[in-house]
Design a protein around this nucleic acid. Structure first.
Lengths: 152, 152
DNA sequence: ATTCAATGTAACTATTGACATTACAACACA
DNA sequence: TGTGTTGTAATGTCAATAGTTACATTGAAT
């Protein structure tokens, strides 16, 4: 299974806050248009990001801002905020392997360490990218586009 | 989303081949009992592993064996054999971001590199473990159990 | 105080993938 | 030819993703 698009959506949302936050009010409708995703889905993700303390959302008046300095928010923070992973484990085990079988009753013990290493490698890499990096790269990308046009 | 249990099932299957392959005929029914998973599911996974050239399955007479030396099969090989990931990409993007929006039309370009690094970190770690490691650790685990009993 | 644009949610739907289950044809060997 | 096994089709259940409509709540601005 792929990691759900909520994660890339959440990053997209932050890229919009970075790029348009000073000039425009970044509302769920605004974000829905940029992402081409239903506003209610956006609001649900905003709720998760807010719950994780990554953004502030203005009720009534509307608009979203980052709740912390951008270099203090990593991709891992965003990932954990929006991806609902059972018990935080990346790999799903088959339930109730046969305890009568020597392999069945020990498979968890045999695998847990190795699989955790894999998960850790991935999470460490996610943690190495911050929203400050995202902002810098987004600005660069848009500058380049402004110079050389949009042709592929 | 979690990575489906097909992966841990496939590893479980190999652990059974390692442990019981010389003494017993490892059939889909045998594996179904050890994993506590439906035999048809097991056969489907066996089909995927066979398709990837990792195992041989004996039609008619029955039974499964590794198709290559164990130190030439990595967890990544197994992962790729059984996990159906669209275009090989771990992260799912929202379709059709708005091309009218500077962020929308560049989000892929901005993120693809970073996300590929994350995926690569995970796959490199998966590639660093072989089925020979699995066999060794399984044997060790069972020896330990034989010495100290099954109490938790 | 009223207005009005937003948010926060509930309710319902569609679609997809995982996994289970029954059934049976094809197969290979004894 | 009989037996045990594989390969696979058909069907069902369940959970998660994602879309959509609807509406009460909020709070700044008029």
């Amino acid at each position: 299974m792929q990691i759900s698009s909520r994660f890339t959506l959440a990053i997209h949302i932050f890229a919009c806050i970075d790029t348009f936050g000073e000039e425009y009010k970044v509302t769920s409708d605004f974000l829905a248009k940029s992402t081409n995703v239903n506003p209610v889905i956006i609001r649900k993700i905003l709720g998760q990001l807010k719950g994780a303390g990554l953004i502030d959302v203005a009720r009534g008046t509307g608009g979203t801002t980052a709740a912390k300095p951008l270099d203090e928010i990593t991709f891992l923070d965003v990932y954990r905020a929006v991806e609902c992973i059972e018990r935080g484990e990346l790999f799903h085990f088959h339930e109730n392997p046969n305890a009568e079988c020597p392999v069945g009753r020990n498979i968890h013990h045999i695998l847990d360490d190795k699989l955790f290493q894999v998960q850790k490698a991935m999470e460490d890499e996610l943690a190495s990218v911050t929203l400050a990096d995202l902002k810098r790269d987004t600005e660069e990308c848009l500058k380049e586009e402004a110079l050389f046009g949009r042709e592929k």
